[in-house]
Simulated assay, not measured.
Amino acid sequence: MFKKILFATLISLTFSCKKSEETKQNIYKTDFKYAKEILYTEDENSITIKSGVNSTTFNKKELPITNIMVETVSGIAFLDELGTVSTIKGVADSKYIYNPKIAAKIKNKEVLEIGNVNELYLEVILQHKPQVIIASTNPVLAKYHQQLEQNGVKILYIDEYLENDPLGRLEYLKVFGKILNKEDLALQRFEKIEKKYDSIKSIIQNHGKGNVKTLVNTMFGDVWYLPTKNNLQAKLINDAKGNYIFNDKQSENTLNLSFEEVYTEAKNATHWINPNYNSLAQMKASYPNYAWFDAYKTGKVYNSDKRSNIYGAKDYFEQGIIRPDLILNDLGKIFYPDLFPKYNLYFYQQLK
């Protein structure tokens, strides 16, 4: 009898401990509303941010972070949105950063050059030892990241470009709110932009006539790379009721088509987005057959380089990450100008 009671007690304690551990995990494991590629776990002493196979832990006594170096333009965009550009002490590939605040700080030697897409200046970084470096999972720089971590520098990996939902990319703002002690502001900004995005989408979906067909991108070598239906670019176009022409094509990541395959499907496209050229003449000079498309003939070709610098840095890839509502509004204006008569394009401009 005693053995039965003891066994029952042990079983009860085991399940009780297991349940307690599961409850603890449920309390501290936080999933996002839209973002799929990042999460964080948190307790009273620390926060661990996980991105893919990488994780970075911050002791809450270290927060807020006030000394940051940034390898990615997205990191700059998130920090700027929360009014914390002053925390940035170093950047990589400064020529290719659009943000004018950073440009001014570099000119005034308030922000250091710490490397480029191929290398990091380890001596400069270690001499000024930041609390964290905002990076993406770049295999070329992996050896540098490893050396920095071995020397006590934290690397926070932010791979928002893997997100296929524009609001998923925006949601990374919450992560920055955590390490900067600006959680309330981050949530307020997220919810405000989310509401704007949904409002614009609702106007387009309810009142857009649906009489447009959209082609994107241009040839790279002999291949025309195109997004699949669930890709970010395609989702933005479809939220703007742009009827992306290759919605029905199936592929894991991108479509790799020939010119002939694209022309067969898209010759009657009414609009052409993101051709990565500065003018219609430049497009035609690069590949004369582009002029065969109806969208080219009518001049309804648009690129997202209205806000760019002389080196080709585009605000579309910076502010656009945290302002998907502006991108959607641009596309709505392009496809259905009558729905937004007073709105002026922000990121996009029509090629002449």
Score class of each variant (00 low, 15 high):
F347A: 03
A281K: 12
F15I: 15
Y34M: 02
Y287Q: 12
E22Q: 14
I114F: 14
M1S: 06
N243H: 03
A266E: 13
Y161H: 13
N151T: 08
K105T: 01
S20T: 04
W292N: 13
Y311C: 07
I88S: 05
F317M: 09
Q150P: 07
T23P: 06
H128Q: 06
N276L: 15
P139D: 00
I334N: 03
K297R: 10
K154Q: 07
D325F: 00
K18M: 12
T9I: 04
G168H: 05
T218L: 06
Y96D: 12
L63H: 11
L180R: 01
Y348E: 05
K33Y: 03
G299V: 08
N231V: 03
S51L: 05
Y336S: 00
K3L: 14
L215M: 14
S86H: 09
N138H: 13
E183A: 01
N108C: 10
I125E: 08
H145S: 06
K89T: 09
Y287A: 08
E260P: 14
L167D: 05
I5F: 04
K174M: 14
N108M: 06
N344G: 01
E42I: 10
I237V: 07
T214N: 04
G177P: 03
F2Y: 12
K267L: 12
Y277R: 10
T84H: 11
K284P: 09
F340W: 01
V85D: 15
Y316E: 09
L328R: 02
I310T: 11
K201M: 07
N303V: 10
I321D: 04
Q131L: 07
I125N: 09
A281W: 06
A281I: 14
K36D: 12
V212Y: 07
Y296W: 14
W292Y: 14
A35Y: 13
N274R: 08
A35T: 11
V301G: 13
R189N: 06
I88L: 00
S199E: 05
F58W: 08
L339K: 00
Q127K: 15
V140F: 09
K342H: 11
N303I: 09
K297E: 12
G152H: 04
V124N: 06
Y311P: 09
W224A: 10
F347D: 03
V53W: 03
S94C: 07
I27W: 13
P324L: 00
N256V: 14
Q150H: 12
V124K: 14
K101H: 08
L167F: 02
F32D: 05
E163I: 05
T298Y: 13
L112V: 09
A234T: 04
L82M: 01
E113H: 03
M1L: 05
I11A: 05
S51G: 09
L10F: 07
I179G: 04
I134T: 02
T48L: 05
G332W: 02
S16C: 15
F317V: 11
K89L: 01
R169D: 12
Y311W: 13
L120M: 04
L167Q: 00
K192I: 05
E113G: 07
Y302S: 03
N59E: 12
V216N: 02
S20V: 07
L39K: 12
F335M: 00
N26R: 09
L63V: 02
N67C: 06
S251M: 05
Q250I: 15
Y346E: 04
F15Y: 11
Y225D: 05
I102P: 10
K178W: 06
V140S: 07
K178Y: 08
V70T: 01
